[in-house]
Design a protein around this nucleic acid. Sequence first.
RNA 1: GGCUUGUUGGUCAAGUGGUCAAGACGUCGCCCUCUCACGGCGAAGACAAGGGUUCGACUCCCUUACAAGCUACCA
Length: 554
Amino acid sequence: MLTEIENKKLAELLFPEVEKTTEYWEEKFPYRKLGKKAEVTRMAPSPTGFIHLGNLYSALADERIAHRHGGVFYLRIEDTDAKRKVDGAVDLIINALRYFNIEFDEGAGFGDDAEQNAYGPYYQTERVEIYHSYAKSLVERGLAYPCFATEEELSKVREEQEENKVLTGYYGKYATWRDKTFAEYEEALKSGAEHVLRLRSQGEEGKEITFHDEIKGDVQLPENIHDIVLLKKDGIPTYHFAHAIDDHLMRTTVVIRGGEWLASVPIHYELFHVLGFKMPKYAHTAHLMKFDEETGGKRKLSKRKDPELSLDFYRKDGYHPHCMKVYLLTLLNSHFEEWHEQHPDEDLNNFPFSVENMSKSGALFDKDKLHNICKNELSRLSEDEVYEFLKTWAEEFEPEKAKLWFADEEKLKSILRLYMGVGAKRRRKDLIFAKQVFELIGYFFGDESEKDEFKLGTEEEKKILAEYLNTFDYADDNSAWFNKLKAVADKLGYASDMKAYKANPEDFKGSVSDIAEAVRISVTGRANTPDLWTIIHIMGEEQMRERINAVLNA
RNA sequence: GGCUUGUUGGUCAAGUGGUCAAGACGUCGCCCUCUCACGGCGAAGACAAGGGUUCGACUCCCUUACAAGCUACCA
């Protein structure tokens, strides 16, 4: 045990450059003046420049919680790990979220003098002075000490511990630098040896803390007994130390983070208490999972193995951000889906989002469900909105083909009206994502990639087509046109009346539907399309005849 | 290994001691119909297992199984 005076001397030895006191910082970053229900949340990514679905998922939760009641949602960059830094990452993050209509109120990316910077700096590497103030105060109070153990020594201890089947880590009797004399600390320091700063943990083995998590409820956890590293040998804080200080000084009220942090809550609990901070509320979220083909089980989505985790994956295929948001919200909050169904036209932001209704267990990412949501959401848009969306996408990802697709605005819009069922009693729901849309309507632009086969054979197909062309008149309206199909049916021994056909199918070669199918396939290459007459009138007589003749002459 | 969390139909889920255990996606069938889509109707399909507590357990407790996370000078 060091005396009070020795602690002070040690602190001075360790942090001679620190002048500002913790009180100074407390005053500089006062509690925020916000409404009673307002929460302060944050997104705190490392600047790897890689934003994935999981990040978006929890950013959405943070943003909703903050903005639900006029709170603040800010961006802090956790760049304490130098190895992970990437240039331009902050803009990448801001833009990625902006794409989904998620905006920060404050934090990194706002410019140094901005009002939105009042609790900054927001880069952890620029906050070292602050961390050191608190570190010094901890040393002064005998709650932290320098540790000169080398990596080799540490791993040797761990091996020993593993062998003896005791808890691994730097604690109790294994914490060799915990109870040195002042002279020993001073001597090691003077030798210039590398060292870290460790917490002198006050926890007791066997004791428990009970911790309330907003999602999981009350959780019993063992008290922290580890003398964890506060400051790394380069003076940069570890996540734990930075988390406590930053979220306290930035006056965060709710910390929403991945479930992998639940296990380190005891550390945070002790840190907050030892530093004299009030703990924020915590919500530990479950991870997005995926079905693993190899093992046949669920597993966490990993950015290495799963391309669909990357936001770019969805951007490339042209998923509309609104659809992604709806899907994520249905995963995020169990009551959202029902609410959205009841209020289809309400702004998503009016949904009463609450942490309590967040899922406890990891959800499997379900592409079918996503697609269903896309269909529904897209079908509610106007053809102009869809047109603009497709155009933006195509210009970025298919610039060559875009020229062809968007050469005739009216034509594309007619196609969209057809495929969306604009004007019909009910909308169609054919559109899922941009790439899929262009595959769907590719035949309008000469895309012959795959042709369906006519089930009654080529000979029959040619007979039907020849007869069809004979009587075809571009000026016919939809019903006149269809009556001619019926006439073709009668002439070739097919039933023109579906009811008659269904009553006695053996009396006919087939029905009008087969006539229509032959024409449909030769014109569009597909057995299934929306209204054929409309298609023909969008593409024009010339293109129709060309396509039919191509089949006839094959 | 230790600590922690989780487990309701194929998937997402409601549910908080008494329900014929919601709903959505998917699947299948029927209807509508020139195909498809849309829409309508219907069907199949679940409380991980075993012990308790209780008049009564999906709900509370214990054990087991399975899954996930943590066990760093990474976050």
